[in-house]
Amino acid sequence: MTTNFVSAAELMAKVLGMPGYDFAIIDHPVSSATDAGLRERAIAALKQGSAMLLR
């Protein structure tokens, strides 16, 4: 999830009966990011995802 959509994701998790559902958060926007920026976002998502899975 990008930073600008965090509140939307939290709301959807709540209305779907899963409040507090965890997700990785990366910088917004993705569509105009450079290759380097995309790499940074991918690494950030990987780290956060790993932390969730290995908790």
């Binding site: 959509f5 509140s7 939307a8 709301l11 959807m12 209305v15």
Partner: peptide, 10 residues
């Protein structure tokens, strides 16, 4: 549907 600006309506 809670399709309010800033809620479901993005």
């Amino acid at each position: 549907m809670d399709v309010r600006p800033g809620a479901i309506d993005r």
